[in-house]
Amino acid sequence: MTNNLATRNKDLLLHGLAEFGKGNIEVLRNLLHENFIEHSPGNPSGRDAFIEFTASAPVATARLDIKRVITDAEYAVVHYHMITSEDARGVAVVDIWRLVDGVITEHWDVVQPVPDADQLPHGMF
């Protein structure tokens, strides 16, 4: 059962990210619980408030190059390179999503600017 939930969570997140990457922000309405809880400073909780905020955030028009997805029965962790038109070097992001019954209920993230390549002897990703 746990493996099935992990697979479902991974498929749900990858599909959602693919749609989001195509500019379909409305996909979040189906992915997020109405009482979605956001743990990142400055980002609002609640599905509608979060979607409105995200629609005008840099991530809405960024390219998301997914590097890793790790899931279990309750969480999905996505590590990706986010590149915007204003920042070609981009940022490294780790999103942690908590899912209950196939719906995202909580989110945490860590965002780190990608430094110059000479500062990364083993690469950023």
Rank of each mutant, 00 (worst) to 15 (best):
V93Y: 02
V103I: 06
D101A: 14
E52M: 14
R63K: 13
R89Q: 15
L5I: 14
A92K: 02
N3C: 13
N35K: 08
I51F: 12
E74C: 15
E86Q: 11
A55D: 05
G123E: 15
I37S: 10
L12F: 10
N9P: 03
I25H: 06
L5C: 14
L12G: 07
A55W: 10
T105C: 13
A6K: 04
R47D: 09
I104D: 07
V94P: 04
D95I: 04
K10L: 07
R47I: 08
S45V: 03
D87W: 01
E106Q: 14
V110N: 06
N9L: 06
N9K: 02
V69E: 06
T7A: 13
P121W: 14
L99N: 04
E52H: 15
N9V: 06
R8C: 09
V69N: 02
G21V: 02
N30I: 10
T61S: 14
T71A: 08
Y80G: 05
A62R: 01
I104G: 14
I66H: 05
S56K: 09
F125S: 11
D72H: 04
A6V: 07
L14W: 00
R98Y: 10
V77P: 02
L5H: 15
W97H: 07
N4S: 15
T105D: 11
I51Q: 09
V100N: 11
D116C: 13
N4Q: 15
A76I: 08
E26K: 13
V78N: 01
I70V: 02
E52G: 12
A62I: 01
R63G: 15
A117E: 15
T84I: 04
D48F: 10
N4W: 15
H79Y: 07
R29T: 15
A92R: 00
V69D: 01
E52P: 11
F53V: 07
F20Q: 00
H79W: 06
P113E: 12
P58H: 11
L13F: 12
I25D: 05
V77Y: 06
V59T: 03
R8Q: 12
N24Q: 04
I51P: 01
L17K: 00
A76T: 01
H33Y: 06
K22C: 05
G16C: 04
P115G: 11
R68T: 05
D116T: 15
L5R: 12
V69M: 03
R89N: 12
Y80D: 06
E34C: 00
V94R: 05
S40W: 03
E52Y: 14
K22M: 04
Y75G: 12
Q112E: 13
I96Q: 08
N9D: 03
L31H: 09
T71N: 03
P115E: 12
M82A: 11
V91C: 01
H79C: 06
D101K: 13
D118Q: 14
V69Q: 00
L12E: 05
I83V: 08
F36Y: 05
D11P: 06
A57D: 09
H81K: 02
T71Q: 00
E34Q: 06
L32A: 01
R47N: 09
S45C: 04
A73F: 10
F36D: 03
P115C: 13
L31S: 13
V69F: 10
N24T: 05
I104R: 12
L12W: 11
G42P: 02
V93M: 09
G23D: 00
R98V: 01
I96P: 09
V93S: 06
K22Y: 02
R47S: 03
